[in-house]
Design a protein around this nucleic acid. Structure first.
Lengths: 337, 337
DNA sequence: TTGAAAGCGCTAACAC
DNA sequence: GTGTTAGCGCTTTCAA
């Protein structure tokens, strides 16, 4: 591996000078600069990141911490993160934690000892203090998708307005003539699902449709529980004319249950969903859904994080936390009438 | 950040001794070991990976290079890689390259300067010499999914037997009474699709069904082209009674086209596919498909790679390349009769 | 405008 | 069984 000394020797200068040419932060005569550049070219030299990292305490590396890359929404976010990171010469380390706080803590300490520059976290839970501590300890940190009231103004956030998105979705259903709208609600320990629940309820009440607890299916364990809940609901006296699913995977299961029962979509019941995962346009019937800007969430989170890193480098402290709520988009396909 | 010196001082020993306790490679008296352990505990010390990496030329980091994490098969592989890596205390850097060799080369040089320990590559193309060079230059390397005849015996490979898997799938269709089996064939510059093509053809011919070029749909640009090809084929005089799709995403498109035409599956035509991506059991009708052991491919590739890394550490050279072909599994759901 | 020297945190000879 | 020393490749004072 060719190092800075080799280049220096070849160019007939000191290692310091080579370093200066590379950083561009100091005056070097045009003549020497040329010779150094030449030597770099000839040797194919590329600086050793470890050595630089050791000296600088910085590594141009960021961590992306997710529950599970196998969840359909994360590959898109991940791609956004990586593209944005690469553009600014950062490398991304992927951590799947299954929301297990033990795993998260392990990862965090490993990553600290690797001198990573910052964290993007998509697995935040209400009591994840080990995550919140990162910011307190001075680590650049961005929360994506999941955050809680107490985080606002304290930690950088890139997400969507879940209340508004759900409100608009349900209002659309009401507007297109649905009267009895069921809700397939995700895990209630996540703020985002509470918000979607609130949005659903508010839209109903604003249009004089009484909120009916019997129409809400609550997630038990895993989204597959919606299979039997859907069948039960459709067989009950509360049979809805529309179902609003708070995520696409839930809608897939619901579609499946409906098909098995021979119920026609959207003729007998409309299904409106949330996420717009890649496959949501490919199922039968293609799903109407609230599109989240996943790729963009990844890009913005990364840009925010890198800004924090640079700011901290210059001023020694983290900038004021920002909260970015991106726009969603209601996509109407064939599962709603 | 507390470093080895702090620990040493607190324990009343030298830094070397602390290092020895940590590595466990040398004798340390039980008494000192205790004191060191204590000091580590008290200070919350964790070694600086940069410093260690600089010294050792090793970083316990591996690179996973993929076309695009958004392709449905990669999240599973990625998860396998990461789980296996974490278990052995390795960290994984994710690189999406879109199969762009410029991007790949950039990534490779960045990664070299980061002293990564090895590469797992899922984006191999026939002429990817920059990848093959990695092995030549002494980097541990494992190819997953994609490889070519010339790589066998030269580079480590973890994949499946595509010929056999396709052969068995088509034989199953023949055995269940199908007589006119179409093929939805993927990009022909990939060896794996050639093999699936070969398997399809061999199964046909072994059962005295003539191979008919008119029944093979060849991928033009992106899998969406299969939409119109399917419709054309179903309207032609060559209308098949079964379609063998060489990947699940292709099958999704085909299903979609069939639905639009009002063709019943599997009554009018069976669809058998390849991959067993998470969603293949959720579409309508649930897809019969050749299941690939994606997670396991990730795990095995990682274990192989780490073995190479350790072997090279000890003996200074890479071990003989291994080729591992994992078993596939024919999963029959509702899209075949 | 350039170079010499020190040091980031760690490990591996080599001594004792 | 333990400590001293040197050095991995880089950047950053400080001098010249």
């Amino acid at each position: 591996m060719t190092n800075i000394k080799v280049v220096a020797e070849l160019a007939g200068v000191s290692a310091t000078t080579v370093s200066r040419v590379l950083s561009g932060k100091s005056y070097v005569s045009d003549d020497t600069r040329m010779r150094v550049m030449d030597a770099i070219q000839k040797t194919g030299y590329s600086p050793n990141v470890m050595a630089k990292g050791l000296k600088m305490g910085r590594t141009n590396t960021i961590v992306l911490m997710l529950p599970d890359i196998q969840n359909l929404i994360f590959p898109m976010i991940t791609r956004g993160v990586e593209d944005a990171a690469r553009q600014k010469n950062y490398t991304v380390i992927l951590c799947n934690t299954d929301e297990n706080s033990g795993v998260e803590k392990d990862y965090i300490s490993t990553m600290k000892s690797r001198l990573v520059d910052g964290f993007i976290v998509g697995s935040m839970l209400p009591n994840s203090i080990h995550i919140r501590n990162l910011r307190t300890e001075g680590f650049p940190l961005v929360l994506i998708n999941r955050f809680y009231a107490k985080d606002e103004g304290k930690i950088d956030i890139v997400a969507i307005d879940n209340f508004k998105a759900a409100y608009n979705a349900v209002r659309y259903l009401i507007g297109s003539g649905h009267k009895k709208i069921a809700l397939a609600l995700g895990r209630e320990n996540l703020y985002l699902y509470n918000e979607r629940h609130r949005g659903y309820r508010a839209a109903l009440e604003d249009h004089n449709i009484p909120y009916n607890e019997n129409l809400v299916m609550r997630e038990a364990t895993g989204s597959s529980s919606f299979y039997s809940m859907t069948q039960a609901l459709m067989n009950s006296e509360n049979r809805p004319d529309a179902i609003f699913a708070t995520s696409d995977p839930k809608a897939f299961v619901i579609l499946h249950a409906l098909h098995e029962m021979g119920i026609r979509i959207p003729k007998d019941v409309s299904v409106l969903s949330f996420d717009n995962v890649t496959l949501s346009g490919m199922v039968e019937p293609p799903l109407s859904t609230v599109a989240q800007p996943f790729y963009d969430i990844g890009v913005r989170a990364t840009n925010n994080l890198i800004h924090q890193i640079q700011y901290k480098d210059e001023k020694g402290v983290l900038p004021q936390p920002l909260k970015e709520l991106l726009e969603t988009d209601l996509i109407i396909r064939a599962s709603t009438r």
